[in-house]
Amino acid sequence: MTGSTETVRKVASNTTVRHYLARVAFGLVLTIVGLLFALPLVWLVLAPFDATPTLSLEWPDWTLDNFARLFQNPYAMRSIGNSLLLGVGTMIIVVVLGALAAYAMSRIRIPGRDGILYGLLLLSSIVTGTAAMVPTFQIITSLGLINTYTGVLLVLAGGILPTVIFILKDFMDSIPKSYEESARLYGAGPFRILRDVVVPIARPGLAFIAIWTIVQVWGNFLVPFILLRSPDLQPAAVLMYTFYTESGQADLRLISAFALLFSAPVLIIYFVVNRRYGFRFHGGIKS
């Protein structure tokens, strides 16, 4: 009798111990993974203020010199402006055309509509990728749009639009048709309906698309790198590539300072939008 209670107790304490150990191990793994992700971010924040930054993480020798040098570089600040221009430009094209196309796709019956959408989506992942680099270059050259923002905007927007149409169509599918029919009965035309009814209801989706597009363009290196020649047109992602010392080494002092500046706008946008819209996305995703 006593023996059996003893065993029960032993087994019970055994499982508690095992449970406890498992939790500790799990926490440990998570900590390590978390650290792995956090280290580059710490570097991003510390290195710009270090007089002699290296690729390893170390306590900085505090200075603002790196930024002073960065601001002396004639292209640095301009490239951030260029990035903004490209990001906002692409965003406007993508949001306007994407909203119109998604609305049409959602409301008009075309045979094979979903096939078209999936096809576009599939192709678009190739268009802006490395595989289509040469043809993209050739097309833009023959259009005479090399070294122009028009060319870059076209290629960037073209690559992003299918995904956007796909997401927004789903969003607009969830808006009841009776809203528009009701507006139509009161004499509203298609653009009026789009402006008064569809866009306000789809606003969270549009906001998400806008931010997402800017972030995509902001980090895009390949397209502007291929299509732009003049250094004063380069966006930040490409310019960073040119920061070398005379000896041909990567200039970590400039790169680290620039990297911090480069990541700031995206972070700011994210926080502002997250506060305003909270990235609510329920309308577009059917549960």
């Binding site: 009841p176 009776s178 809203y179 029919e181 009701s182 008064d196 009814v197 306000p200 209801i201 606003r203």
Partner: peptide, 9 residues
Amino acid sequence: FQDYALFPH
């Protein structure tokens, strides 16, 4: 309309 179609915004 049956669902009233009031504009939610």
